[in-house]
């Protein structure tokens, strides 16, 4: 025990806080994307307006920096306006799944018993199906719109959050401070959410950041397949479907949103990994 304390003390802030270059770049990219998501529709208010006369202009055409698609929509405006559709959903999915994970994971890990058993089988069931397949089938067969898809993905993403929170809570619940709180006869809810949960928060935040990356991929995959986002709306994934047939005439219609999806997903993943390493020291496999 004293040894571990000594080791922990030894590892204490020796190094100055430094932000690795790739994390800095990722944060800049994520910030820019968030800004575009917030004010994109103000910059490009009529991004989805069609004009047959301007159809299929190549990149660099006057007035259309990235050209237009086959419906005459300006690719740059469409991309800017599509940012919020591509990003807001994934962020809400990550937050919603985090909340669900906190609620069910803490209860399962702290209360145990039959509740834990039920929640455990529920996560087993969700884990036994590939997430994307379940999302395609359910959203497609029921014709889910954007917000129903968000709810569906929250449910499908939650098992990993539930398991992570549960494992963290189980580990914390055995510690002396929980016993101390029980001696003070604090209520169960207060111990669970007030005492145990803050000690697991770094795991939760890290996983939420990684979930943003995976939800972005899942969301754009669904809209690429024609599920979840209605045809004709501004959305990066949708742009890829529409732009595939006009790759010869205007490659920017596909390459720009494709590279943006790859870039933002990588950035969110890098930041998540970095948070995992700095906040928990163990990270995830």
């Amino acid at each position: 025990m004293t040894d571990t304390v000594a080791i922990v003390l030894d590892q204490a802030p020796k190094k100055r806080f430094r932000l690795p270059l790739e994390v800095l770049l990722s944060l800049v990219l994520l910030g820019a994307a968030a800004l575009m998501a917030a004010i994109g529709t103000l910059i490009a208010p009529d991004a989805t307006s069609q004009s047959i006369l301007d159809a299929l202009l190549p990149p660099g055409s006057p007035g259309h920096l990235l050209g237009t698609d086959e419906l005459g929509r300006d690719v740059l405006a469409l991309t800017i306006a599509g940012t919020s559709s591509a990003l807001v959903g994934p962020v809400i999915v990550a937050l919603g799944s985090m909340l669900l994970g906190i609620l069910l994971g803490t209860i399962a890990g702290y209360v145990r018993g039959p509740v834990d058993f039920l929640i455990g089988r529920w996560t087993d069931l969700l884990f036994s199906l590939p997430m994307l397949l379940a999302a395609i089938v359910v959203a497609g067969v029921f014709g889910a719109g954007y917000w129903m898809t968000v709810v569906l993905l929250i449910v499908l993403f939650s098992p990993s959050d539930i398991r992570i929170v549960r494992a963290g809570v189980l580990e914390q619940a055995a510690r002396p401070f929980v016993e101390a709180a029980q001696m003070l006869s604090l209520s169960k809810a207060r111990i669970m959410f007030g005492q145990v949960l803050p000690n697991v928060s770094s795991l939760i935040i890290t996983n939420a950041m990684l979930n943003v990356a995976f939800a972005l991929v899942a969301f754009s995959s669904l809209s690429f397949l024609g599920v979840g986002v209605p045809a004709g709306s501004a959305d990066w994934g949708r742009q890829l479907t529409d732009g595939r047939s006009i790759m010869m005439d205007n490659p920017a219609a596909v390459l720009v949103p494709a590279l943006l999806i790859i870039g933002v997903a990588c950035a969110a993943n890098l930041v998540g990994d970095w948070l995992g390493q700095t906040m928990t020291r163990t990270g995830r496999v």
């Binding site: 754009s220 790759m247 490659p251 590279l259 790859i262 997903a265 993943n269 990994d273």
Partner: peptide
């Protein structure tokens, strides 16, 4: 590993399609 884990298959596919089938 980071790119492979984060980049969706269709986005990679479309970039490859453009680079190695069109360009």
């Amino acid at each position: 590993g980071i790119v492979g884990l984060s980049a969706p298959t269709f986005a990679v596919g479309l970039v490859l399609l453009y680079a190695l089938a069109f360009y």
